[in-house]
Design a protein around this nucleic acid. Structure first.
Length: 573
DNA sequence: GCCGTTTTCGGCCCGACTGTTTTCAGTCG
Protein backbone atom coordinates (compact mmCIF):
# COMPACT_ATOMS: atom_id res chain seq x y z
CA UNK A 1 0.00 0.00 0.00
CA UNK A 2 1.21 3.48 -0.80
CA UNK A 3 2.73 5.45 2.06
CA UNK A 4 0.58 8.36 3.20
CA UNK A 5 1.54 11.34 5.36
CA UNK A 6 -0.16 9.80 8.38
CA UNK A 7 2.22 6.81 8.23
CA UNK A 8 5.30 9.01 8.23
CA UNK A 9 3.99 11.14 11.08
CA UNK A 10 3.18 8.05 13.10
CA UNK A 11 6.68 6.65 12.62
CA UNK A 12 8.27 9.95 13.65
CA UNK A 13 6.09 10.15 16.75
CA UNK A 14 7.18 6.65 17.73
CA UNK A 15 10.84 7.50 17.20
CA UNK A 16 10.33 10.55 19.41
CA UNK A 17 8.77 8.46 22.18
CA UNK A 18 11.61 5.91 22.08
CA UNK A 19 14.26 8.62 22.13
CA UNK A 20 12.48 10.19 25.06
CA UNK A 21 12.59 6.97 27.06
CA UNK A 22 16.22 6.48 26.10
CA UNK A 23 16.96 9.91 27.55
CA UNK A 24 18.06 11.42 24.24
CA UNK A 25 18.45 15.17 23.81
CA UNK A 26 14.93 16.59 24.39
CA UNK A 27 15.34 18.95 21.46
CA UNK A 28 15.99 16.06 19.16
CA UNK A 29 12.79 14.49 20.45
CA UNK A 30 11.00 17.74 19.75
CA UNK A 31 12.45 17.87 16.25
CA UNK A 32 10.82 14.53 15.43
CA UNK A 33 7.48 15.59 16.94
CA UNK A 34 7.58 18.91 15.08
CA UNK A 35 8.28 17.14 11.82
CA UNK A 36 5.40 14.73 12.48
CA UNK A 37 3.06 17.65 13.03
CA UNK A 38 4.26 19.50 9.95
CA UNK A 39 3.62 16.42 7.83
CA UNK A 40 0.18 15.80 9.32
CA UNK A 41 -0.89 19.35 8.58
CA UNK A 42 0.53 19.33 5.11
CA UNK A 43 -2.50 18.51 2.98
CA UNK A 44 -0.26 17.67 0.06
CA UNK A 45 0.97 14.12 -0.15
CA UNK A 46 4.68 13.78 0.62
CA UNK A 47 4.96 10.97 -1.93
CA UNK A 48 3.68 13.29 -4.64
CA UNK A 49 5.98 16.09 -3.54
CA UNK A 50 8.93 13.74 -3.88
CA UNK A 51 7.85 12.46 -7.26
CA UNK A 52 7.56 16.06 -8.44
CA UNK A 53 11.11 16.63 -7.31
CA UNK A 54 10.24 19.10 -4.56
CA UNK A 55 12.82 19.80 -1.88
CA UNK A 56 11.43 18.59 1.44
CA UNK A 57 14.03 20.61 3.30
CA UNK A 58 11.97 23.68 2.47
CA UNK A 59 9.33 22.41 4.89
CA UNK A 60 9.68 23.90 8.37
CA UNK A 61 11.46 21.60 10.80
CA UNK A 62 12.70 19.21 8.15
CA UNK A 63 16.42 19.16 7.44
CA UNK A 64 18.89 16.84 5.84
CA UNK A 65 18.47 13.91 8.23
CA UNK A 66 14.69 13.94 8.41
CA UNK A 67 14.41 14.24 4.65
CA UNK A 68 16.60 11.18 4.41
CA UNK A 69 14.33 9.35 6.89
CA UNK A 70 11.26 10.33 4.88
CA UNK A 71 12.81 9.05 1.65
CA UNK A 72 13.55 5.77 3.34
CA UNK A 73 9.98 5.42 4.60
CA UNK A 74 8.52 6.29 1.19
CA UNK A 75 10.82 3.82 -0.57
CA UNK A 76 10.49 0.89 1.84
CA UNK A 77 7.47 1.63 4.00
CA UNK A 78 9.75 1.27 7.04
CA UNK A 79 12.43 3.08 8.97
CA UNK A 80 15.47 1.07 10.05
CA UNK A 81 16.14 3.53 12.86
CA UNK A 82 12.75 2.76 14.38
CA UNK A 83 13.18 -0.97 14.01
CA UNK A 84 16.52 -0.79 15.82
CA UNK A 85 14.87 1.19 18.59
CA UNK A 86 12.11 -1.39 18.87
CA UNK A 87 14.77 -4.05 19.35
CA UNK A 88 16.51 -2.18 22.13
CA UNK A 89 13.39 -1.00 23.99
CA UNK A 90 10.16 -2.98 24.50
CA UNK A 91 7.64 -1.28 22.20
CA UNK A 92 4.88 -1.60 24.83
CA UNK A 93 6.70 0.97 26.96
CA UNK A 94 5.32 3.64 24.65
CA UNK A 95 1.83 2.78 25.90
CA UNK A 96 2.96 3.47 29.45
CA UNK A 97 3.83 7.04 28.46
CA UNK A 98 0.14 7.64 27.88
CA UNK A 99 -0.61 7.05 31.56
CA UNK A 100 -1.21 10.27 33.42
CA UNK A 101 1.74 11.05 35.64
CA UNK A 102 4.15 8.69 33.89
CA UNK A 103 6.68 10.43 31.71
CA UNK A 104 9.82 9.17 30.03
CA UNK A 105 12.00 9.30 33.13
CA UNK A 106 9.63 7.29 35.26
CA UNK A 107 8.94 4.76 32.52
CA UNK A 108 12.67 4.33 32.09
CA UNK A 109 13.12 3.78 35.84
CA UNK A 110 10.27 1.26 35.92
CA UNK A 111 11.80 -0.63 33.05
CA UNK A 112 15.36 -0.61 34.32
CA UNK A 113 14.69 -1.23 37.99
CA UNK A 114 11.70 -3.56 37.83
CA UNK A 115 11.93 -4.88 34.28
CA UNK A 116 8.42 -3.68 33.54
CA UNK A 117 7.56 -3.97 29.85
CA UNK A 118 3.78 -3.89 29.67
CA UNK A 119 0.61 -2.56 31.25
CA UNK A 120 0.10 -5.92 32.97
CA UNK A 121 3.61 -5.85 34.47
CA UNK A 122 2.92 -2.34 35.67
CA UNK A 123 -0.32 -3.30 37.36
CA UNK A 124 1.29 -6.25 39.11
CA UNK A 125 4.24 -4.20 40.35
CA UNK A 126 1.93 -1.46 41.58
CA UNK A 127 -0.13 -3.92 43.58
CA UNK A 128 2.83 -5.86 44.97
CA UNK A 129 4.37 -2.74 46.49
CA UNK A 130 7.47 -2.94 44.32
CA UNK A 131 6.87 0.45 42.76
CA UNK A 132 6.27 2.18 46.07
CA UNK A 133 9.69 1.04 47.24
CA UNK A 134 11.42 2.67 44.27
CA UNK A 135 13.21 5.97 44.85
CA UNK A 136 11.20 8.86 43.43
CA UNK A 137 7.96 6.92 43.74
CA UNK A 138 5.61 6.76 46.70
CA UNK A 139 2.10 5.89 47.82
CA UNK A 140 0.50 8.63 45.78
CA UNK A 141 2.28 7.78 42.57
CA UNK A 142 1.16 4.15 42.89
CA UNK A 143 -2.42 5.31 43.37
CA UNK A 144 -2.13 7.50 40.31
CA UNK A 145 -0.67 4.68 38.26
CA UNK A 146 -3.50 2.32 39.17
CA UNK A 147 -6.02 4.98 38.29
CA UNK A 148 -4.18 5.58 35.03
CA UNK A 149 -4.28 1.90 34.10
CA UNK A 150 -8.06 1.89 34.50
CA UNK A 151 -8.33 4.84 32.18
CA UNK A 152 -5.78 3.46 29.74
CA UNK A 153 -8.38 1.28 28.05
CA UNK A 154 -10.23 4.34 26.93
CA UNK A 155 -6.91 5.97 26.28
CA UNK A 156 -6.61 8.40 23.46
CA UNK A 157 -10.31 9.03 23.70
CA UNK A 158 -11.28 12.36 22.30
CA UNK A 159 -14.69 13.96 22.36
CA UNK A 160 -16.41 15.30 19.29
CA UNK A 161 -16.60 19.05 19.50
CA UNK A 162 -20.40 19.08 19.64
CA UNK A 163 -20.36 16.65 22.59
CA UNK A 164 -17.69 18.63 24.42
CA UNK A 165 -19.85 21.70 23.91
CA UNK A 166 -22.66 20.14 25.94
CA UNK A 167 -20.35 19.63 28.90
CA UNK A 168 -18.72 23.01 28.42
CA UNK A 169 -22.09 24.76 28.54
CA UNK A 170 -23.09 22.77 31.59
CA UNK A 171 -19.91 23.78 33.41
CA UNK A 172 -20.06 27.41 32.34
CA UNK A 173 -23.61 27.56 33.60
CA UNK A 174 -22.57 26.00 36.92
CA UNK A 175 -19.52 28.20 37.42
CA UNK A 176 -21.28 31.29 36.18
CA UNK A 177 -23.63 31.15 39.16
CA UNK A 178 -20.79 31.95 41.57
CA UNK A 179 -20.76 35.51 42.79
CA UNK A 180 -17.62 37.41 41.89
CA UNK A 181 -16.81 35.66 38.61
CA UNK A 182 -15.80 38.27 36.05
CA UNK A 183 -14.69 36.52 32.89
CA UNK A 184 -15.45 32.89 32.15
CA UNK A 185 -14.47 31.24 28.90
CA UNK A 186 -13.45 27.87 27.50
CA UNK A 187 -10.04 28.18 25.87
CA UNK A 188 -7.86 25.41 24.43
CA UNK A 189 -8.70 23.29 21.41
CA UNK A 190 -12.39 23.85 22.14
CA UNK A 191 -11.99 27.54 21.40
CA UNK A 192 -9.95 26.71 18.33
CA UNK A 193 -12.96 24.58 17.24
CA UNK A 194 -10.96 21.44 16.60
CA UNK A 195 -13.22 18.64 15.34
CA UNK A 196 -12.45 16.68 18.50
CA UNK A 197 -11.18 17.89 21.86
CA UNK A 198 -9.24 15.93 24.47
CA UNK A 199 -10.08 18.13 27.44
CA UNK A 200 -11.65 21.44 28.38
CA UNK A 201 -9.56 24.40 29.51
CA UNK A 202 -11.68 26.91 31.36
CA UNK A 203 -10.26 30.31 32.12
CA UNK A 204 -11.76 32.61 34.73
CA UNK A 205 -10.94 35.94 36.29
CA UNK A 206 -12.27 36.59 39.76
CA UNK A 207 -11.27 37.98 43.10
CA UNK A 208 -12.53 35.27 45.43
CA UNK A 209 -10.58 32.45 43.88
CA UNK A 210 -10.75 30.00 46.79
CA UNK A 211 -14.53 29.91 46.69
CA UNK A 212 -14.46 29.18 42.98
CA UNK A 213 -11.96 26.34 43.27
CA UNK A 214 -14.05 24.70 45.98
CA UNK A 215 -17.18 25.15 43.90
CA UNK A 216 -15.44 23.71 40.84
CA UNK A 217 -14.30 20.45 42.47
CA UNK A 218 -17.80 19.91 43.88
CA UNK A 219 -19.41 19.86 40.41
CA UNK A 220 -21.84 16.94 40.51
CA UNK A 221 -20.38 15.18 37.45
CA UNK A 222 -16.87 14.94 38.94
CA UNK A 223 -15.35 11.48 39.04
CA UNK A 224 -12.16 12.55 40.79
CA UNK A 225 -10.01 15.58 41.44
CA UNK A 226 -6.56 15.41 39.86
CA UNK A 227 -5.09 18.56 41.36
CA UNK A 228 -6.18 21.63 43.20
CA UNK A 229 -4.01 24.72 43.34
CA UNK A 230 -4.19 28.45 43.78
CA UNK A 231 -4.26 29.20 40.04
CA UNK A 232 -5.00 25.88 38.44
CA UNK A 233 -7.21 22.90 39.27
CA UNK A 234 -8.00 19.78 37.31
CA UNK A 235 -10.92 17.38 37.54
CA UNK A 236 -11.99 14.35 35.57
CA UNK A 237 -15.71 14.04 34.87
CA UNK A 238 -17.67 10.81 35.08
CA UNK A 239 -17.47 10.45 31.31
CA UNK A 240 -13.63 10.70 31.59
CA UNK A 241 -13.48 14.17 30.12
CA UNK A 242 -10.73 16.13 31.85
CA UNK A 243 -11.41 19.75 32.75
CA UNK A 244 -8.84 22.32 33.82
CA UNK A 245 -9.85 25.53 35.50
CA UNK A 246 -7.32 28.36 35.57
CA UNK A 247 -7.55 31.69 37.29
CA UNK A 248 -5.78 34.90 36.44
CA UNK A 249 -6.04 38.51 37.49
CA UNK A 250 -8.31 40.51 35.23
CA UNK A 251 -5.42 42.64 33.94
CA UNK A 252 -3.76 39.45 32.62
CA UNK A 253 -6.87 38.17 30.89
CA UNK A 254 -5.63 38.67 27.33
CA UNK A 255 -2.24 37.07 27.76
CA UNK A 256 -3.76 34.19 29.72
CA UNK A 257 -6.48 33.65 27.12
CA UNK A 258 -3.99 33.60 24.30
CA UNK A 259 -1.69 31.34 26.29
CA UNK A 260 -4.42 28.82 27.18
CA UNK A 261 -6.03 28.88 23.76
CA UNK A 262 -2.86 27.59 22.13
CA UNK A 263 -2.15 25.70 20.12
CA UNK A 264 1.10 24.84 21.75
CA UNK A 265 2.87 25.13 18.42
CA UNK A 266 1.31 28.53 17.77
CA UNK A 267 2.35 29.75 21.22
CA UNK A 268 5.89 28.58 20.74
CA UNK A 269 6.11 30.38 17.42
CA UNK A 270 4.66 33.57 18.94
CA UNK A 271 7.02 33.49 21.91
CA UNK A 272 9.93 32.90 19.61
CA UNK A 273 9.15 36.13 17.79
CA UNK A 274 8.91 37.83 21.18
CA UNK A 275 12.36 36.55 22.14
CA UNK A 276 13.79 37.86 18.87
CA UNK A 277 12.41 41.28 19.80
CA UNK A 278 13.84 41.16 23.30
CA UNK A 279 10.45 40.43 24.86
CA UNK A 280 9.10 37.63 27.00
CA UNK A 281 5.52 36.40 26.72
CA UNK A 282 3.86 34.24 29.34
CA UNK A 283 0.35 33.90 30.73
CA UNK A 284 0.85 37.01 32.86
CA UNK A 285 1.66 39.37 30.07
CA UNK A 286 4.29 40.62 27.70
CA UNK A 287 7.50 41.75 29.41
CA UNK A 288 10.42 43.91 28.41
CA UNK A 289 12.92 43.06 31.14
CA UNK A 290 11.02 43.53 34.38
CA UNK A 291 8.52 45.90 32.83
CA UNK A 292 5.13 44.57 31.78
CA UNK A 293 4.12 46.20 28.51
CA UNK A 294 0.92 44.36 27.49
CA UNK A 295 -1.52 41.63 28.42
CA UNK A 296 -5.01 42.89 29.09
CA UNK A 297 -6.35 41.77 25.72
CA UNK A 298 -5.25 39.32 23.05
CA UNK A 299 -5.01 42.22 20.59
CA UNK A 300 -2.43 43.79 22.89
CA UNK A 301 -0.39 40.60 23.03
CA UNK A 302 -0.27 40.19 19.26
CA UNK A 303 0.25 43.92 18.88
CA UNK A 304 3.34 43.78 21.09
CA UNK A 305 5.11 41.69 18.45
CA UNK A 306 3.75 43.70 15.56
CA UNK A 307 0.94 41.35 14.53
CA UNK A 308 -2.80 41.87 14.10
CA UNK A 309 -5.29 39.74 16.04
CA UNK A 310 -5.33 36.13 14.83
CA UNK A 311 -8.61 34.21 15.02
CA UNK A 312 -8.43 31.19 17.37
CA UNK A 313 -9.38 28.76 14.58
CA UNK A 314 -6.19 29.70 12.72
CA UNK A 315 -3.81 29.23 15.64
CA UNK A 316 -2.18 25.98 14.61
CA UNK A 317 1.17 27.23 13.32
CA UNK A 318 0.11 26.43 9.79
CA UNK A 319 1.29 29.69 8.32
CA UNK A 320 -1.06 32.07 10.15
CA UNK A 321 1.80 33.94 11.80
CA UNK A 322 3.49 34.62 8.46
CA UNK A 323 0.12 35.60 6.99
CA UNK A 324 -0.50 37.97 9.90
CA UNK A 325 2.94 39.49 9.47
CA UNK A 326 2.34 40.22 5.80
CA UNK A 327 -1.27 41.37 6.13
CA UNK A 328 -2.62 38.30 4.37
CA UNK A 329 -4.84 36.79 7.06
CA UNK A 330 -8.10 35.48 5.62
CA UNK A 331 -11.37 37.14 6.50
CA UNK A 332 -13.04 33.98 7.75
CA UNK A 333 -16.51 32.87 6.73
CA UNK A 334 -19.27 33.28 9.33
CA UNK A 335 -22.53 31.45 9.88
CA UNK A 336 -24.56 34.48 8.84
CA UNK A 337 -22.85 34.45 5.44
CA UNK A 338 -24.64 31.24 4.49
CA UNK A 339 -27.73 31.81 2.37
CA UNK A 340 -29.04 28.27 2.31
CA UNK A 341 -28.43 24.56 2.60
CA UNK A 342 -27.55 22.31 -0.31
CA UNK A 343 -27.96 18.86 1.23
CA UNK A 344 -30.93 17.59 3.21
CA UNK A 345 -33.47 14.79 3.35
CA UNK A 346 -37.22 14.42 3.81
CA UNK A 347 -39.77 11.70 4.55
CA UNK A 348 -39.57 10.76 0.86
CA UNK A 349 -36.53 8.72 1.96
CA UNK A 350 -34.94 8.46 5.41
CA UNK A 351 -35.69 11.98 6.69
CA UNK A 352 -37.97 12.52 9.68
CA UNK A 353 -39.72 15.67 8.48
CA UNK A 354 -41.80 16.37 5.39
CA UNK A 355 -40.64 18.45 2.49
CA UNK A 356 -42.84 21.32 3.60
CA UNK A 357 -41.61 21.12 7.21
CA UNK A 358 -37.99 21.20 6.07
CA UNK A 359 -38.68 24.16 3.82
CA UNK A 360 -40.45 26.13 6.53
CA UNK A 361 -37.68 25.38 9.05
CA UNK A 362 -35.17 26.68 6.53
CA UNK A 363 -37.20 29.85 6.08
CA UNK A 364 -37.19 30.26 9.87
CA UNK A 365 -33.39 30.19 9.78
CA UNK A 366 -33.49 33.16 7.44
CA UNK A 367 -32.31 31.20 4.43
CA UNK A 368 -32.95 32.23 0.85
CA UNK A 369 -33.03 28.69 -0.48
CA UNK A 370 -32.87 25.03 0.45
CA UNK A 371 -31.99 22.15 -1.82
CA UNK A 372 -33.87 18.91 -1.23
CA UNK A 373 -31.48 16.07 -1.95
CA UNK A 374 -33.01 12.75 -1.00
CA UNK A 375 -31.30 9.44 -1.62
CA UNK A 376 -31.42 7.59 -4.92
CA UNK A 377 -32.78 4.11 -5.52
CA UNK A 378 -29.69 2.04 -4.81
CA UNK A 379 -29.90 2.99 -1.16
CA UNK A 380 -32.83 0.67 -0.50
CA UNK A 381 -32.55 0.89 3.31
CA UNK A 382 -33.43 4.57 2.95
CA UNK A 383 -36.16 3.86 0.39
CA UNK A 384 -34.10 5.75 -2.17
CA UNK A 385 -35.96 7.47 -5.01
CA UNK A 386 -36.31 6.00 -8.46
CA UNK A 387 -37.08 8.15 -11.48
CA UNK A 388 -40.81 8.00 -10.94
CA UNK A 389 -40.79 9.01 -7.27
CA UNK A 390 -38.20 11.70 -7.92
CA UNK A 391 -40.54 13.19 -10.53
CA UNK A 392 -43.34 13.17 -7.96
CA UNK A 393 -41.07 15.06 -5.59
CA UNK A 394 -40.20 17.56 -8.32
CA UNK A 395 -43.91 18.23 -8.79
CA UNK A 396 -44.46 18.73 -5.08
CA UNK A 397 -41.55 21.19 -4.98
CA UNK A 398 -43.13 23.15 -7.83
CA UNK A 399 -46.39 23.36 -5.87
CA UNK A 400 -44.63 24.36 -2.62
CA UNK A 401 -42.60 27.04 -4.38
CA UNK A 402 -45.90 28.63 -5.37
CA UNK A 403 -47.19 28.40 -1.82
CA UNK A 404 -44.19 29.38 0.34
CA UNK A 405 -42.99 32.94 -0.05
CA UNK A 406 -39.49 34.17 0.73
CA UNK A 407 -37.76 30.87 0.12
CA UNK A 408 -36.86 28.91 -2.99
CA UNK A 409 -36.82 25.15 -2.79
CA UNK A 410 -34.26 23.74 -5.16
CA UNK A 411 -34.77 20.36 -6.76
CA UNK A 412 -31.92 18.02 -6.08
CA UNK A 413 -30.81 14.49 -5.36
CA UNK A 414 -28.08 12.80 -3.39
CA UNK A 415 -27.35 10.30 -6.08
CA UNK A 416 -25.34 7.20 -5.28
CA UNK A 417 -22.00 6.87 -6.98
CA UNK A 418 -21.91 3.25 -8.07
CA UNK A 419 -18.85 1.06 -7.86
CA UNK A 420 -17.84 1.76 -11.45
CA UNK A 421 -18.24 5.53 -10.99
CA UNK A 422 -21.51 5.83 -12.89
CA UNK A 423 -24.49 7.46 -11.22
CA UNK A 424 -27.54 5.66 -9.86
CA UNK A 425 -30.07 7.61 -11.98
CA UNK A 426 -30.14 8.38 -15.71
CA UNK A 427 -29.12 11.76 -17.11
CA UNK A 428 -32.66 12.17 -18.46
CA UNK A 429 -33.93 12.86 -14.94
CA UNK A 430 -30.77 14.44 -13.50
CA UNK A 431 -30.95 17.18 -16.08
CA UNK A 432 -34.35 18.27 -14.78
CA UNK A 433 -32.86 19.09 -11.37
CA UNK A 434 -31.35 22.31 -10.07
CA UNK A 435 -28.43 20.46 -8.58
CA UNK A 436 -27.01 16.99 -8.18
CA UNK A 437 -25.07 15.93 -5.12
CA UNK A 438 -23.12 12.71 -5.52
CA UNK A 439 -22.04 10.40 -2.72
CA UNK A 440 -20.49 7.05 -1.98
CA UNK A 441 -22.50 4.82 0.37
CA UNK A 442 -21.02 1.38 -0.22
CA UNK A 443 -17.81 -0.32 -1.31
CA UNK A 444 -15.73 1.79 1.03
CA UNK A 445 -12.80 -0.54 0.89
CA UNK A 446 -11.77 -0.25 -2.74
CA UNK A 447 -8.07 0.29 -3.39
CA UNK A 448 -6.84 3.85 -3.34
CA UNK A 449 -6.51 3.85 -7.12
CA UNK A 450 -9.95 2.35 -7.73
CA UNK A 451 -11.70 4.67 -5.26
CA UNK A 452 -10.02 7.72 -6.75
CA UNK A 453 -10.93 6.64 -10.26
CA UNK A 454 -14.51 5.99 -9.16
CA UNK A 455 -14.93 9.50 -7.80
CA UNK A 456 -13.35 11.14 -10.81
CA UNK A 457 -15.51 9.10 -13.16
CA UNK A 458 -18.58 10.27 -11.26
CA UNK A 459 -17.52 13.86 -11.83
CA UNK A 460 -17.22 13.14 -15.55
CA UNK A 461 -20.99 13.21 -15.54
CA UNK A 462 -21.81 16.80 -16.53
CA UNK A 463 -24.80 16.97 -14.17
CA UNK A 464 -22.89 16.25 -10.99
CA UNK A 465 -22.35 19.47 -9.04
CA UNK A 466 -21.19 18.55 -5.56
CA UNK A 467 -19.28 15.64 -4.13
CA UNK A 468 -20.82 14.95 -0.70
CA UNK A 469 -18.84 13.84 2.36
CA UNK A 470 -15.87 13.26 0.07
CA UNK A 471 -13.69 11.09 2.30
CA UNK A 472 -16.41 9.18 4.14
CA UNK A 473 -14.90 9.44 7.59
CA UNK A 474 -16.99 9.06 10.72
CA UNK A 475 -15.13 10.69 13.58
CA UNK A 476 -14.05 8.10 16.14
CA UNK A 477 -15.81 5.31 14.25
CA UNK A 478 -14.59 4.94 10.71
CA UNK A 479 -11.46 6.12 8.95
CA UNK A 480 -11.70 7.93 5.64
CA UNK A 481 -11.70 5.62 2.71
CA UNK A 482 -8.47 5.31 0.80
CA UNK A 483 -8.52 8.00 -1.84
CA UNK A 484 -6.04 10.38 -3.41
CA UNK A 485 -7.77 13.57 -2.39
CA UNK A 486 -5.47 15.79 -4.43
CA UNK A 487 -6.27 13.95 -7.64
CA UNK A 488 -9.95 14.25 -6.79
CA UNK A 489 -9.56 17.97 -6.14
CA UNK A 490 -7.65 18.42 -9.37
CA UNK A 491 -10.36 16.63 -11.29
CA UNK A 492 -13.06 18.68 -9.54
CA UNK A 493 -11.39 21.91 -10.57
CA UNK A 494 -11.03 20.81 -14.18
CA UNK A 495 -14.68 19.79 -14.35
CA UNK A 496 -16.23 22.67 -12.41
CA UNK A 497 -17.41 20.46 -9.53
CA UNK A 498 -17.64 21.54 -5.91
CA UNK A 499 -16.86 19.63 -2.76
CA UNK A 500 -19.00 19.45 0.33
CA UNK A 501 -18.06 20.18 3.88
CA UNK A 502 -20.66 17.99 5.52
CA UNK A 503 -21.67 19.61 8.81
CA UNK A 504 -22.85 16.54 10.70
CA UNK A 505 -20.84 16.65 13.93
CA UNK A 506 -19.59 13.10 13.43
CA UNK A 507 -18.57 13.72 9.82
CA UNK A 508 -17.12 17.20 9.31
CA UNK A 509 -15.93 15.98 5.95
CA UNK A 510 -13.97 17.57 4.24
CA UNK A 511 -11.83 18.23 7.27
CA UNK A 512 -9.95 21.46 7.96
CA UNK A 513 -6.70 20.48 6.22
CA UNK A 514 -8.49 19.39 3.05
CA UNK A 515 -10.66 22.53 3.03
CA UNK A 516 -7.50 24.58 3.07
CA UNK A 517 -6.05 22.52 0.26
CA UNK A 518 -9.24 22.90 -1.79
CA UNK A 519 -9.19 26.65 -1.23
CA UNK A 520 -5.58 26.89 -2.36
CA UNK A 521 -6.46 24.92 -5.49
CA UNK A 522 -9.36 27.26 -6.18
CA UNK A 523 -12.20 24.84 -5.53
CA UNK A 524 -15.43 26.03 -3.97
CA UNK A 525 -16.99 24.33 -0.97
CA UNK A 526 -20.61 23.73 -0.02
CA UNK A 527 -21.16 23.92 3.74
CA UNK A 528 -24.30 21.85 4.14
CA UNK A 529 -25.97 19.85 6.87
CA UNK A 530 -27.14 16.56 5.37
CA UNK A 531 -30.07 17.17 7.75
CA UNK A 532 -32.53 14.34 8.24
CA UNK A 533 -34.85 16.49 10.36
CA UNK A 534 -35.63 20.16 10.90
CA UNK A 535 -33.51 20.37 14.04
CA UNK A 536 -30.26 19.38 12.37
CA UNK A 537 -30.60 22.18 9.83
CA UNK A 538 -28.86 24.04 12.67
CA UNK A 539 -25.71 21.95 12.23
CA UNK A 540 -24.25 24.41 9.76
CA UNK A 541 -22.48 26.05 12.68
CA UNK A 542 -20.35 22.92 13.12
CA UNK A 543 -19.43 23.04 9.46
CA UNK A 544 -18.56 26.71 9.80
CA UNK A 545 -16.15 25.84 12.62
CA UNK A 546 -14.15 23.55 10.35
CA UNK A 547 -14.43 25.89 7.37
CA UNK A 548 -12.83 28.61 9.47
CA UNK A 549 -10.09 26.22 10.55
CA UNK A 550 -9.60 25.58 6.84
CA UNK A 551 -9.10 29.33 6.17
CA UNK A 552 -12.29 29.56 4.07
CA UNK A 553 -13.66 32.96 3.22
CA UNK A 554 -17.07 33.94 1.93
CA UNK A 555 -15.87 33.79 -1.67
CA UNK A 556 -14.76 30.17 -1.22
CA UNK A 557 -18.21 28.94 -0.26
CA UNK A 558 -20.87 28.00 -2.81
CA UNK A 559 -23.85 28.53 -0.55
CA UNK A 560 -22.66 31.93 0.62
CA UNK A 561 -23.95 33.13 -2.76
CA UNK A 562 -27.38 34.53 -3.39
CA UNK A 563 -29.85 32.45 -5.37
CA UNK A 564 -29.17 33.93 -8.81
CA UNK A 565 -25.44 33.61 -8.51
CA UNK A 566 -25.82 30.10 -7.12
CA UNK A 567 -27.94 29.03 -10.08
CA UNK A 568 -25.36 30.52 -12.41
CA UNK A 569 -22.40 28.65 -10.92
CA UNK A 570 -24.36 25.40 -10.72
CA UNK A 571 -24.46 25.28 -14.53
CA UNK A 572 -21.35 23.33 -15.35
CA UNK A 573 -19.66 24.43 -18.48
C1' DG B 1 17.61 17.11 14.84
C1' DC B 2 16.86 22.03 13.19
C1' DC B 3 18.38 26.56 12.39
C1' DG B 4 21.03 31.15 11.37
C1' DT B 5 20.60 40.33 8.84
C1' DT B 6 24.26 38.85 15.79
C1' DT B 7 25.76 32.58 15.14
C1' DT B 8 27.75 26.62 11.03
C1' DC B 9 28.00 26.08 17.17
C1' DG B 10 25.04 26.70 20.64
C1' DG B 11 21.04 27.79 21.29
C1' DC B 12 16.16 25.66 21.10
C1' DC B 13 9.06 28.78 25.25
C1' DC B 14 7.50 29.06 29.86
C1' DG B 15 5.38 28.33 34.29
C1' DA B 16 2.31 25.47 37.77
C1' DC B 17 1.49 21.47 40.48
C1' DT B 18 2.76 17.14 42.79
C1' DG B 19 5.30 14.17 45.45
C1' DT B 20 9.09 12.91 47.57
C1' DT B 21 12.31 16.27 48.49
C1' DT B 22 16.01 18.24 52.40
C1' DT B 23 16.37 22.21 47.63
C1' DC B 24 14.01 19.87 43.37
C1' DA B 25 12.94 16.58 39.48
C1' DG B 26 9.33 15.00 36.78
C1' DT B 27 5.24 15.83 34.44
C1' DC B 28 1.89 18.49 32.22
C1' DG B 29 -0.22 21.83 29.30
Amino acid sequence: MAVVNEDIASIFNKVAAFYEIKGENPFKVRAYRNAARTIQNLGTNIVDMLSQGQDLKELPGIGKDLEHDIREIVATGRLKKLENLERSIPPALIELLAIEGLGPKKVKALHERLNITSLDDLKEAAKSGAIEALPGFGKKSVEQILKGIMLAKKEGRRFRWAIAELYANDLLDYLGRIKGIENLVVAGSFRRKKDTVGDLDILATAKNWDVITEHFVRFDKVKFVVSKGSTRSTIVLKNDLQVDLRSVAVENYGSALSYFTGSKAHNIAVRKIAVERGLKINEYGVFKGERRIAGKTEEEVYGSIGLPYIEPELREDRGEIEAAGTGRLPRLIELRDLKGDLHCHTTYTDGKNTLEEMARASLELGHEYIAITDHSKRLTVARGLDEKRLRQQIEEIDRLNQKIKGLTILKGIEVDILEDGTLDLPDSVLKELDLVVGAIHYKFKLSREAQTKRMIKAMDNPYLNILAHPTGRLIGERESYEVNIEEVLDAARERGCFLELNSQPDRLDLNDVNCRLAKEMGIKISISTDAHNTFSLNYQRYGINQARRGWLEKADVVNARGLDELKYILKRR
